[in-house]
């Protein structure tokens, strides 16, 4: 019954720390997903652009970020951001002390940039499967570009992109485990700290696994109902 004691709330156990770390994981994941979706709007526009240079920038982004290990992306961004900020501070203000950037921000940005590369591919793919004819039909009844985009394209892109974005979400959620290397205390980091100080690694890594499973299961259930909603008119009802 040792593990109940270890995982209890309060001063003696690590339960409350693990729950707090879970909140951090959720917050980083949501922030990263939002940053990723925001980035993917530009990524999609770039990759579908007629301009060769802009298209090359979009392609470079998705190829590089998807082509190297995520841990490496996180290290590069973590040290890259720090170095960049420090050298800017140095050259502009002559400030040469070490600057510690808010670690949550760096973590969310790093995972967001990874997540954005995958979202870009998903959304670009979804744009390409919306039948051209439906866009032409919208134009033929006088819809302007904005209406075509907002009333016809977006609802259908969402429908086609949702399953893929669900995958990206799960990926993003799990990628946040890698940002323990930056020192942000999320589930993985907390499990690491707790197992180190209690010599019960299995208990804590197992509880971390269960926490991740709870999060991913809950989100795939939410995603299923979102997909059902977005797929109205596709699978439902047979006349």
């Amino acid at each position: 019954m040792e593990f109940i004691h270890l995982l209890s709330l309060g001063d003696q156990g690590w339960g409350d720390e693990m729950l707090r770390a879970t909140m951090v994981t959720i917050m980083v994941s949501i922030s990263a997903m939002c940053i990723g979706l925001f980035v993917s709007i530009f990524g999609t526009i770039a990759k579908l652009s007629k301009n060769r240079l802009i298209r090359a920038i979009g392609n470079t982004y998705t190829t590089v970020v998807r082509g190297i290990p995520e841990l490496l992306v996180i290290y590069l961004l973590y040290f890259g951001f720090n170095n960049a900020v420090m050298s800017i501070a140095n050259s502009l203000f002559g400030y040469n002390q070490y600057i510690e950037l808010p670690v949550f921000l760096i973590a969310a940005l790093a995972v967001g940039i990874i997540s954005g590369a995958y979202s870009t591919e998903v959304i670009r793919g979804a744009f390409l499967v919306v039948p051209r004819g439906q866009i032409e039909a919208a134009k033929s009844v006088g819809m302007n570009k904005f209406l075509v985009f907002y009333r016809v394209l977006i609802p259908q892109v969402l429908r086609y992109a949702l399953p893929g974005l669900g995958n990206v979400w799960q990926l993003t959620l799990k990628d946040t485990a890698l940002i323990m290397v930056t020192g942000l205390v999320e589930i993985m980091r907390q499990a690491h700290i707790a197992s180190g100080s209690t010599y019960s690694p299995f208990t804590f890594y197992m509880s971390a696994a269960i926490l991740y499973l709870v999060l991913t299961t809950a989100s795939s259930m939410a995603l299923n109902s979102a997909e059902n909603w977005a797929n109205k008119g596709v699978k439902r009802e047979k006349a």
Binding site: P131, Q134, A138, S140, G142, Q156
Partner: peptide, 16 residues
């Protein structure tokens, strides 16, 4: 275009 509405070979109804 609203003076010239078009009917297409593949209907092109908005499926959503």
């Amino acid at each position: 275009r609203t003076k010239l509405a078009m009917v297409f070979q593949d209907f092109n109804l908005w499926t959503h």
